[in-house]
Amino acid sequence: MHLYRIDPAGDREAVRALYGIHRAAEAAETPEGPILPAPSFCDWAAHGWSDEPREVWLGDSDGDGDRGTGPAAGGYVLELPDTGTHRVASLLLVVHPEARSCGAGRRLFEHARARMRAAGATSCTAMVLNGSPGEALARSTGAKPSLVFLRQVCALDRAKAPRPGEVTAAAGVPGYSPVRWCGRTPRGYESDVAALTTATSDAPSGDVDRDGVPWSVQRVRTRDERCAARGTRAYSVAAFCESEGRLVALSTAYVDAAHEGWASQGDTVVLGEHRGRRLSLGVKKDLMTWLREKEPSVHSIATWNAEPNDGIRRVNGSLGFTVSRRWTEWHLVL
C-alpha cells in the first residue's frame, strides 16, 4: 500500500475516493443505515465539526511515486489535539471490504501512530463497531476498550411525542418556556449555548482523560458556519429559565441536504442545577414534534449515547428509541 496525504478541502477527487471506501464499509457492516451523506463527510474530513486540526491520508493498493496508481484501498482521518495537557487524538480508519485481510488496516494504523507521535499526541481514541473486523485490529495494537456507545433509532411516525399543534412539552414545566430556532444560533443565545455545550463534558468518558476545554462564542459560530456550508439544517429546541433569564437546556437535531430519510440527534444537555425537572425529556419531545412538522420526508432519527448514561437512555426509551448497534471507543496510550 502506498500512502499519501491529501488536501480534503482542495482535492475533491481524493476525498470522494475516501468517502467511497467509508460508504462501502458502512454498507457492509450496517446496511440498515444511516450512512453519513457525501457532502457532510467531505466537509467533516476537511474541517471537522468546528475547525479542529486534522490530517487526511489515502492509501492505494499499489503504485509508487508521490501518489499511487492503483485503486484507493483505505485511508484515515486523524484529528489532532492543539490544546490541553492530555493531548488525545481521534482516529477514523477505513479499509474497503475488498481490500481486507491483506494487512492494509495494520499498515494504515502504523502510519497514523507515527503521525500522532510526531504531533505530540499522548494517546488516541477510535470508535469501532462491535463484532466488526476493526475489533481485532484495535486489540492487536494494544488498545483497550474504554466505553461502549449505543446507536439508538426512532421512527418519527411512532415517536411518543406531541403531534404538531399540541401543547409543547417544555411549556408544561413551571418557570420555563420553550425556545426554537433553525440554523445559526441567535446572537442573544450564543453565550448560553456555549455554556450548555461545555456542560456536555461531564458525560461518561470511560478511562480517557480529556481536558474539557470550555466552548467559546466563536467556536459556536464556527460550528454553525460549518453546518451551513455543508447544507445541513440544524433544528434546536431550548428551555429558557424565566427567573435566571438564560437557556438552561438544549437539544439539537441535524438534517443533511442528502439525508436519505434520516435525521441525526446531536447533544441533549441540561445545566446541572436544573436537572431532575424533566427538561431533557421536554426539549427532546418538542424537537421531535417540530421535525415531523418541518421535515415530512424524514422517517427516522438516530442518536448516540454512552451506555452508562442511564438518564438519557431512559429519556430515549420513553420516546420510542430502540438500540440498533453498539460501538466501543478504544483507547491507546502512545
Rank of each mutant, 00 (worst) to 15 (best):
S140Q: 11
D64I: 06
D11Y: 01
T83M: 04
T168M: 09
V283H: 01
G134A: 12
E32I: 00
A171C: 02
G84E: 10
V128L: 13
K285Q: 15
H2M: 12
K294F: 05
T30D: 02
A72I: 05
C154H: 02
L78H: 12
T322W: 07
T83A: 15
E307Y: 13
A253N: 06
H299A: 14
V95T: 14
Q218L: 10
A28R: 12
L92D: 15
W44Q: 03
D209A: 14
A72D: 02
A99I: 09
Y76K: 05
T232S: 10
Q265W: 05
P53C: 06
P164Y: 06
P39W: 06
H47G: 01
G245W: 09
H331P: 01
A203S: 15
S177V: 03
A104Q: 12
S40L: 06
G311C: 07
S61D: 12
A112G: 07
H47L: 03
A199G: 11
W290A: 10
D267H: 14
E26H: 03
H274C: 08
M116P: 02
A136G: 11
G20V: 02
A253T: 07
A234P: 00
V248I: 13
D207P: 05
P39G: 04
A72P: 14
S50E: 12
L78V: 12
Q152Y: 06
E13H: 03
P97M: 11
V179S: 00
A203V: 11
I21W: 00
M127H: 13
G282E: 00
T69Y: 02
E307S: 14
K144G: 08
C102I: 12
R275M: 09
P34F: 04
V56I: 09
